[in-house]
């Protein structure tokens, strides 16, 4: 195996190395993201989620570019086949795969090295492909037209019911008022404090009439009558304050 490497082999080695680093980057990124989801799910916000997705999509793109690049040999021309299958655990393999694959055995290899779908699936795909190939162009256009028609009809129906629904919602928002705060206040005031229920008290009427009477008296040109009450007031005041001022 130590034979001098051909130019193609060198290219393949270099290409694979690049591919491995890119895939490794992508894997790390996904692992970090999963870790974030598991540990920071309470504080994680949507923008930082989007950032993570953008990073991954960028890495996928660069991987794609590498695969399409000029320096990458056509990988499909190479065949990978297992030389040895063994049920025994292989520590080297386990280390390489970070504990995911313990041994290169008969159970795993068909899944990992698969390049084609399973035979049953392939059969089904072929069947459908044949059927599609056999369809008459005319019938195809006919069916296409009818499908378009149905779709546009359906869209119309959805749009019209959406309009209706929005109208309904709008009407619900403008539902007529069923209660008035002022009425609540009035009713509560009436029931708890008798507001607007109390009859005008006859004694109250007298009290209301009183001031008017005295007003007339004040307007009366006789000054003695008007002064009398104020004199009494001051007398009472000084009388009550006196004993405390001079004990």
């Amino acid at each position: 195996m130590q034979a001098p490497q051909s130019k193609e082999e060198k290219q393949l080695d270099a290409g694979l190395e690049g591919l491995i680093t890119k895939v490794h980057d992508l894997k790390n990124q996904i692992a970090a993201f999963i870790n974030k989801l598991e540990t920071e799910y309470e504080t994680l916000n949507w923008p930082s989620m989007l950032d993570n997705f953008a990073l991954m999509s960028g890495q996928l793109n660069s991987l794609k570019q590498l695969l399409r690049g000029d320096k990458m040999p056509a990988l499909r021309n190479f065949v990978l086949f297992p030389v040895l299958l063994s049920q025994d655990p292989d520590p080297h393999l386990e280390k390489l795969t970070e504990g995911r694959v313990v041994s290169c055995n008969h159970d795993l290899v068909p899944d990992y090295l698969r390049t084609k779908p399973e035979p049953e699936v392939e059969e089904k795909i072929n069947l459908i492909a044949n059927k599609a190939a056999n369809v008459n162009i005319e019938t195809a256009t006919k069916q296409l037209n009818s499908l378009n028609k149905i779709t546009s009809n359906l869209l119309d129906i959805i749009n019209s019911s959406k309009d209706e629904w929005e109208n309904d919602a709008g009407q619900k928002g403008s539902q007529p008022q069923t209660s008035q705060q002022q009425d609540t206040t009035n009713l509560v005031a009436a029931v708890t404090k008798g507001l607007r229920l109390r009859r005008p008290d006859p004694s109250m009427q007298q009290m209301q009439a009183g001031p008017i009477h005295s007003m007339q008296q004040v307007q009366n040109p006789r000054p003695g009558m008007g002064k009398m009450p104020s004199a009494i007031k001051t007398n009472i005041k000084s009388g009550s304050a006196h004993p405390y001022q001079r004990p």
């Binding site: 539902q175 069923t178 209660s179 609540t184 206040t185 509560v188 005031a189 708890t192 404090k193 507001l195």
Partner: peptide
């Protein structure tokens, strides 16, 4: 709700 808004009506707010 929204037919009737039942609330704890502060009686001190009454006129």
């Amino acid at each position: 709700k929204p037919l009737v808004v039942l609330e704890k009506f502060d009686h001190k707010r009454l006129p």
